[in-house]
């Protein structure tokens, strides 16, 4: 009896949490959680787009890119999303196979990323490079190549688990791209350099900034945050001569979104300066198309890899499981 009242009460109270937006023109965007945070790109993007369309943008956020695809799978195709924003190219092949996405039918000439872009379903909104970030207070001779880093003895690194984290997967693919079938020997060397492997980026980065470990796997743009938001250049990215592995973040239109004219309009808007201007200093990634003004000079100080490394989405989809297993086998020894 009491329990029933409680349930009724809690349901009633909590139903108040949910906003039932019934606007006529509504665009539902699924994205990852740090995109919609108050300091993230979400609020500004929403404002800018709503100014052009007289519509309402509704963000639904989940933990990360992987969770995004998962969400669609759990929904079994009957999704609320018109746009899914935040997958990366390691997931796009599987996302395409799922049949949840519709071709965008837009020209992607505006997209300007290393290696170019052509895909009929997904459009990039930003990109970045993975990098070893080091603490200049603790590391005197930062590594200058992956080889140098793996063989090096100065300081340890915190990395992420490719089974649970996108950057973790990125490092694995990076090594795989450089060493090919010799990757397992490289992992053996890597293992000696690793202090710990965390489930996600946050844990390892927190270990790094708390001084526990002098190196961490992150992005070339990470130092920009510390320079702009904290005014310190203590943390730097190490440039590797073999090149850096890329992460390209994309958005796509769902089959439901194909019926909503706002969806294509949003993707078009995503390639425009109004959207791209927001990216660098909110998402701390590099814009995938022209911005209206040059980026903060701090971004010029970042590492600009001479060579960008990337597997095609199909290669990743085909080999990911086997490669992760190989990584696991060596790293578990």
């Amino acid at each position: 009896m009491h329990r029933l009242t409680l349930f009724a009460l809690s349901t009633a109270v909590l139903a108040g949490f949910s906003h039932v937006a019934q606007a006529q023109d509504k665009l539902t965007v699924y994205t990852y959680e740090s995109f919609t945070a108050e300091w993230g790109p979400g609020p500004k993007v929403k404002e800018a787009f709503e100014a052009t369309c007289a519509c309402e943008v509704d963000f639904v956020s989940v933990a990360d890119g992987v969770a995004l695809l998962n969400r669609l799978r759990l929904e079994g195709g009957r999704t609320d999303a018109d746009i899914v924003l935040g997958l990366d190219t390691n997931l796009t092949a599987e996302a395409k196979d799922s049949g949840f996405f519709a071709p965008h039918g837009l020209s992607t000439d505006a997209i300007d990323i290393p290696g170019g872009w052509s895909d009929d379903t997904f459009i990039p909104f930003d990109y970045g490079y993975f990098a070893v970030i080091y603490d200049t207070d603790a590391i005197e001779n930062p590594p200058t190549s992956m080889h140098d880093f793996l063989k090096g003895r100065e300081g340890m690194i915190a990395i992420q688990d490719p089974r649970t984290s996108t950057p973790g997967l990125g490092l694995m693919l990076w090594i795989r791209k450089i060493y090919g079938d010799l990757a397992s020997e490289a992992y053996e060397e890597l293992q000696k350099r690793v202090l710990t492997v965390t489930p996600g980026w946050s844990e390892s980065y927190a270990l790094f900034t708390s001084g526990e470990v002098p190196m961490v796997l992150s992005y070339t743009t990470s130092p920009a945050y510390h320079m702009i938001a904290e005014g310190t250049d203590r943390y730097q990215a190490a440039e590797f001569s073999e090149g850096h592995y890329m992460q390209i973040e994309v958005a796509g239109m769902t089959t439901k979104g194909a019926d909503n004219p706002l969806a294509a309009q949003f993707l078009e808007f995503m390639m425009s300066p109004a959207f791209q201007d927001v990216i660098p200093e909110t998402n701390w990634m590099l814009p995938a198309a022209a911005t209206s003004e040059p980026l903060d000079p701090v971004f010029d100080k970042m590492v600009h890899p001479e060579k960008s490394l990337l597997f095609t989405p199909e290669e990743v989809a085909e080999n990911r499981e086997a490669w992760v297993e190989e990584w696991l086998e060596v790293m578990s020894r």
Binding site: R163, T164, T196, V197, E203, S332
Partner: peptide, 19 residues
């Protein structure tokens, strides 16, 4: 236990079923 085991375990040697 999940985050504790992965983070302090030092590597995938220390993995629980939950992971």
């Amino acid at each position: 236990s999940f985050a504790v085991v992965l983070t302090l375990g030092g590597g995938p040697r220390a993995t629980t079923l939950e992971v």
